[in-house]
Simulated assay, not measured.
Amino acid sequence: MATASSVKSLNGKRVAILVTDGFEQVELTGPKKALEDAGVQVDILSGTAGQVRGWNHDKPADSFKVDTVFDAANIDQYDAIVLPGGVQNSDTIRVLPAAQKLVKAINSAGKPIAVICHGGWLLVSSGLVKGKTMTSFASLKDDIINAGGNWVDKEVVKDGQLISSRQPDDIPAFNQQLIQALSA
Rank of each mutant, 00 (worst) to 15 (best):
I116D: 00
L96P: 04
S63A: 14
G127C: 07
P97N: 01
G110A: 08
D67E: 00
G120E: 05
Q88H: 13
V82Q: 03
K101H: 12
D71T: 12
I93S: 03
P112L: 02
G119Q: 02
V129P: 03
T92S: 15
K65M: 10
V95N: 15
I81V: 15
P112Q: 05
S63L: 08
A72D: 14
N107R: 09
A99I: 01
A99W: 15
V103M: 09
L96D: 15
S125R: 04
K101D: 12
P112C: 02
D67A: 12
T92P: 12
A109L: 04
Q100F: 13
L83I: 13
V115F: 08
F64A: 05
D79R: 02
N74Q: 12
D91G: 15
A114G: 00
Q77K: 10
A98M: 09
H118E: 00
V87K: 14
L128N: 12
D71Y: 06
G85A: 06
R94D: 00
V115P: 14
T92Q: 15
I93N: 00
S90Q: 10
L102M: 09
A80D: 04
G131M: 01
K111A: 02
K141H: 02
S108H: 08
K111F: 04
G110D: 00
C117I: 11
K111C: 03
V69Y: 08
I106F: 02
I81A: 06
C117L: 11
G86Q: 08
D91F: 05
K104T: 07
